[in-house]
Structure formats: structure tokens, C-alpha cells
Design a protein around this nucleic acid. Sequence first.
DNA 1: GCAAGGTC
Length: 969
Amino acid sequence: MRLISYVCKQFSPEVMKYLCVAEKNDAAKNIAKFLSKGTSNRREGLSKFNKIYEFDCQVRGQQSRMVMTSVSGHLLNYEFSSQYRSWNSCNPVLLLDAPVNKFCPENNIKIKKTLEREIRGCNGLIIWTDCDREGENIGMEVVNVCTEVKRNIVVYRAKFSEITGPSVFRALNNLEEPNKNVSDAVNVRQEIDLRTGAAFTRFQTLRYKNVFPNILSDKLVSYGSCQFPTLGFIVDRYLLVQNFIPENFWKIKMNHKVGDLSTDFNWVRERLFSKEAVMMFLDICKDNPVANVENVENKPKNKWRPLPLDTIEMEKNISRKLKITAKETMKVAEKLYTQGFISYPRTETNIFPKELNLRELVEQQTNDNNWGPFANRILEEYGGPNPRQGKKSDQAHPPIHPTKYAENLQGKEKQVYEFIVRHFLACVSQDAVGHETVVHTDVSSEKFTARGLIIIKRNYLDVYIYEKWNAKEINDYKIGDTFTPTVLEMVEGQTSAPNYMTESELIAIMEKNGIGTDATHAEHIETIKSRDYVTLRDNNYFIPTNLGLGLVEGYNQLEMEISLSKPVLRANFEKDLQLICNGVKRPDEVLNDQITKYKEVYQQVMLKVGLIDRTLAQHLNDTPHEYQEPQFQTNTYRSLMKCPRCGSDINLRDMKNGRGKFIGCSGYPGCKYVIWLTFGYSEIEVLDESCNICGPDVKKLKIKFDQNPFLGEPNPNVLCIGGCDPAVLTALNISLTDNSGANNHSRTEAPSSRPAQNNTSFNNARPNQSVGIPNVRPNQSIIPNPPRPTRVVPPRNLPSSDDTIVCNCNEPAVLLTCQNNGPNNGRQFYKCYCNDPSRKCNFFLWAPEEGHGPEPRASAASAEEEEIKCKCAMMAVTKTVQKEGPNKGKQFYTCPKPMGSSCNFFKWVDEDNAAGGSTSYRGRARGRGRGRGGGANHGNRTLSNQPRAPRKCGICGQEGHTRTRCPNK
DNA sequence: GCAAGGTC
């Protein structure tokens, strides 16, 4: 509560306006209805899924304005960085630790925009999402979106277990803080599910379409941490049935008939697997076939009313008794919940909270024609509701119960609602009461018993029509009675295999093993049906298909310590997630553990994959083709640096039209950060070499310019665009902070000719529209490394008359020879000798040589020979007049930028450059550069005597030196 | 074309 007391001081109490966000539209509607007491005004959100309700309400003792709206489940979703999304982009194993980002899917954008719009007018936020693990995470997504727009807002969490008037007011009067631990656990769960699911799904699909093209060429052979263990349960039962060997058994049957009343007696030995032995016992009995009644037990026997209803029990019972599938049941229950007829249908709790007014709930049902009289009996005859209590609680939702009487429901809604009401009334009523009689008899020392049942009060059975309790009348025996059995004979039987698995059993075993949630069991079952892993026999029993059986058997053949089709991996993961919730384990710790485990599994699978192939081949009855490894794309991009906007990697990427490259964020489309390369180049690549100044995350770029903007520098040049050298950014027209399109035009094309994807998406990117939330691993920062303060290097002027060249470290420079294949091949240059990265000495200087000395400028330079710069210091391009007229065909220099952002520089090619007066900055001819800035600007020696505009330092703007020698660094 | 979890 510390947060709350702190932030409350930030605002004047009379102006509080809260944005309230529920998990779904109907919940928002009902919460608003109760809180506003029916006075809320409705208006439309930007999405049809989130209406907005406005009303006044007391919050923490203050009259406040409430703006109630909703999301629609999760707002964001994890996705791989774009370069990993294509199925042939990489080996699937790389997906286990490839970069992932959270982004807002297209169909949630309007919901997100609604939140962003509404929070601007509010100074508080109250999270009303469901009070479970996922709801906490959804709430945190809302908090992140809203605080990104408006930082200083009060954030509260409303905790409620049902949407009723008392419950929501109780939540409002006991506002809490969001729980970050719980939200973190969900993030880990999401990330691991995506990584493992995608990695193994791609592996299986790509491999088996190749190995069994006749059968699986078009099949999606998916893997999921829940779907595979679910398949495994069905296969286990199937194999149990298939491998079952029946055995014959024999037993003695005894019956006694008195008039019309027939009483069966059970042999205490039940059955024996030896015919001879049973025959022997029967012979003994028949020697003196008189039954002596040794004892008669009379005792009360109750049949217990059901426990309060949780989701699993609801799914199992409705599946078994009403023959409605779990998936359908949940769909119907969800609808009933959103209509306010029942409480939240996803609950693990079977204990009613004390504060829930059960009497009121029973009273709501008293007018029904079918169960109304029973409800009245609870109130009048039983002294009010008396629930049987279970032992489970999820601390979030109460057991499923009716919250409102419904009389006009139809079809399955009616059936499900009726089940929930009858179950509720049953569990708060009384156990059925009966009387049991057990008769013990002796026939020649062999014991036989008979049981009779008299039902005294049916109680809950009157309303819970789904259960039967049959009375069994037997003869009235007394101790000491003797009688001759009507039937005394040997009967033969055979053990039988268990049945294949029913849905009800499957859900039970999933729950027991922690596979899926109460909300998703039904989904996983549907998934394995749709993948053709299992099929339904007689509309009731699950059996695996050849594919499902082959896959599970294949993995089982590997005899791995941890099998993908066994539930242990998921179960252990769930335990770790709970530890994150409890604050015992750190999320990154669990994440890394899981990734390591799955990598080991993947490696083991790869080692013995032939065994899976052969097992699958047997089950599919097909000959496996030799596996051809797909040609995975090799252009998985090397990270250039971290995105200034979202912290993901940004990479040098190919334009879709193949006409160049650009630098884009791997979080696209979540993050649309992009740098267009507006300068001319023939080669560009990201090197392994990191920038000493910007840090290890920032790699250097090697660029071969069409026209080298760095006069005298080698071409190709090795540069850093991480921000350590503003002159580089200026020369390349790159802005790291402004990404609204300052350089958002392609290298050589007008924006309209860019690929459509980039043309629309990237141009629309604005900083506050970021939808990407980076997946920040522990050692990552979401903010790129800022340029470190550059070491101060005092200017060291080289003696102009001295032949010794010294570098910026004041050490003699080393004379090297250019080895590249460019025009400078074989040419000599000076470089820092000490080669100590910590010194950050970038010294470079061409050595004077014959034929490379000062040259007179060509009087009428062609574009090839002369470098002309425009007003924005870009290398001017040569164009030819196309317009009809006297100048048609004449060449001119102009700014390389497209119309609209051009500096409008203009100069005729044949104009006398030497005359001066031009606005251009003239450089050296290609391949004839000298020291940076033409030598003179290095301050060490002049290697060119060409007339030129004075160069200014890219860092401090002063003349007389350049960035490498800047005293103000 | 991948997961599981929300919800419509």
C-alpha cells in the first residue's frame, strides 16, 4: 500500500477521474451497472469489443468520475523477431533462444488505442481484470500501455471473485496493488510455450513432410507442451487396452428366492483363476448345501451430496451425464457468466467463502416450477443452506453457482444452467439417508454375504437428477436362520480390458498432472483431434491415430530421461511458475533453466531421430524417404545494435524489391523503427567488430561508398553509427532519435517506390505509437548504450617539417599498405602503431607517394572525377536536363535527396569550379583522398593544396581540426 | 503453417 499512499499525494482529491479496465466487455458492462447503480452513460470505444461507461462513484471516500472500459483478454502477444518468422529462416533449434518481443496484434490495436485515448483524461487507473494469474498479466499489460502515455497516474487493482453488487463494491473499497510476480510468471510461461512449441512443431512438420511425403506432405505436425502430454495419456490407455491379455476366472454363485423376492449372495473369495479350486469349494458346499445366517448388520447409510462445483467437475459431469463436450460446456458457461446468470466458470475452488450470501442465492430459485419447491425446502425444512465443503481454493473465484434466476434459456444454455442450479441446490441441502442391511452366511465353511438397502430420505437426490441411488430389497433374515439356496453353482468369467479413455477421464488425468488450465483442457483435446492425432470411437472413447501413436511411440523409443509426451516437463514448469508467483524464484532464472532443458531434449532427439522415423514408418505403414535437410536461409541478420525505441536488435536488412538495404528493428511490426540509407554505396555489411566507444552491443559497419563523404578516408570505410561520432551520423544523414521519417526515404528511390510494406508502416511510425515491449533478458538494456564520454585527447600537432608521423596517442605511426581490392590497393597509409583498443586512437593518414601527391583540380570535372557536395554536405549527383529547351542534354549537379527534402542545390557540370562562389563543398576525386579532411584539417601536414571551403569539426563545429583531433571531445 | 492463454 506504500505505492498508493505515495501516489495519492500527487493529486488534488476533488479531481480524481479513474480509467477502469475489465478483462472483457460484458464484465465492464456489469461492473459499471453495479457501481453506477444503473446510472452509467454508455459511449463507443474505438473497437466494437470495448464499450465505455461513464458514471460517478465514491472511491476511497471521494466522489470520483469513473470511465469503465475493457480489453478483450490479452492485449499483447509474444512473437519472434521478424527474421525468424519464416519457416525456412533458420534451424528450428535456434527458436529456443531467438529474440522474441511482445507486440499488439492487429485486432487489438483499436482496443489499445482506446486505452491510450481514455487515460489521457484520467489521473487514476483501476485494474478490474479477472483475479487469476492470467488476469494479473493482462492487468499489467494495461498498466504498461497507460503509463507509457501518462506516467504519473495512480494505479490500483480491484480484487473480486464474482460480478455482483456486493462483490464489486467490496473490491472498490479494498483496492490493492497489481502483483508483479504473478504477471512475471505468466510472461515466462508465454515465452517458453512459444519457443518450445515453435521449435518442435517446425522440426516435426518440416522433417515428416519430407520423410513421408505421401502421407504428411500437407500436415501440420504440431508440438505443444500441453497437447503432447494429452496425446500421451490417450496413447497410454490405448496401449493398455491393446496389450491386455484376458484371463479366465471362476466363482460360486448363490441365490435365495422367497416368493417373488430374490436375494443374491456374493462369495467372499470373489473369484479364483483356478477352475479346479473353485470346483473343489463348490463340491464341499454341495456336500451340505445349507446356509446358516451368522450375522445381520443393520446400519445407517448416507449418500453424500456433491461438493461445490469447480470447472473440472462441471466439465466431467456434463460430459458424462448430458453428453455435452467440455469445449461446448465452457463456451456455454462463459456466455451464461457474461450474461450474469452464473459466477465465473473457471475456478478451482470447491469451498464457498463465508461472506457469500447463500440464502439469497437459494431464494432466487424458489419460484422455478422444477426446482423451486426444493429451494424452498432448503430454506424451510433444512434450516437454510448448509454447503458441503471441499478442500480446494484458488483464492480467486468461488465455486460455480447461479447468480441470477433465468427462466427463458433454451437448448444447451438451459441444460448447463439447470445443471449448475441443481448442483448448487444439491450441495447446500442434505445428504440422502438410507439404511443398509448386510447378511453374513456360512455354507460348509464358505462365506457368502448379501446387501440390502432401504432409502429413508432422498433429500438432495430429489433435485440432483443426475445421480441414482437404488434401493435393494432383500429377505428379512435373522441370526440363526438356515435356508437352502435356490441356486448354488459355479460360473465362469473372463477379465476384460479397461475401456478406452473417455473425455471425462481425460480431463481428470490432465488436471491431476497439471496439464492446461481449467479453461483450456477442452481446447487441448480439440487440438489433438484437429491434428489427426486422435479420433473418437463410438462418440465416446478416444483412440490415437497411426500418426499420433507413431509419434508418441517414436519419442518413447528414444528412452530419454524426459519424454516430450510425458507430463513431467510441464508439471515441473508449473511448479517453478508458482515459485515465481511466490517470489521465491526469479523469472529469468526459470526461463534460462527451461531453455537449457529443452535444448538438451532437442539435442537428444536429433541424435536418435532415425529411430523416430522408423517407428513412425511402421505405424504409418509407409517407406520413409531419405531426409533432405531444408536449405535454411543464411541471411539471419547479425545485430547491428539495440533499437533506440524498443531495445530489440536492429539489423541491416534487404529491401523487398532487392534494390538495396535498410536498417530495421527486429521487433517489426511491433516496433517500426527504421533507418533508411540515403547515401550511395556499392557494399555494406555489419562486422563482428564492436565499437570501443558505444560498447559491445554496437557493431561497426563496413561501407563502400559510391562517393566517399569522408574525404581522404579509405573506401570501404569502417564506421560506427551508434552515436559516438555525430559527424558520421550527419554525413550519412542518420538521426538515431528522430525516426519519424527524417531520413525515411530510400537510398536511390523516391518514397513512393519503396516496398508497400515499408511505405505505409514505417512512415506511420511515431515514437508514442510504439507497440513493442522488448523481451529484456537480464543482461540486456532496453536503452541503447549511450555514447560514452569520449576520452580527452589534447591536440598534438605534428611538426610539419618532421618526417616522423605520430598518431593521436603521440606515438610514431606505422606505415602500412592497403590490401583491399579497391582503387587504393597497394597504397600506403599511416595508422596508430600501438593498436590498443582502450586508447581509441582512430588515427589514419595516407602516405604521400608519387602520383598521389597534390593534383591540380580538373577544370571541367565529370561526376566521376570530381566530388561536388550540395548544401547539406551530401555528395551531389549528376543529372541531365530532360526538358525541351536550350539546356536539354546539359548536365548539372543537384542534391541526392528526393524532392521535398532536397536542399535545392544546383550547379552546371561545365560551370567553372575554380571561379568560386559556388555553394558546393568540393572534395577530392574518387580514390584520391588524403588524410581526413584533406590533410590540413588533421593539423599535422598538408597533403593537398586544393582550394576548398574551410572544414569544420563534426563535434564542436570549430575550424582548424576534425573530430579525431577535437580538443573538445 | 508454429504454443498456450485470454476472449468475441
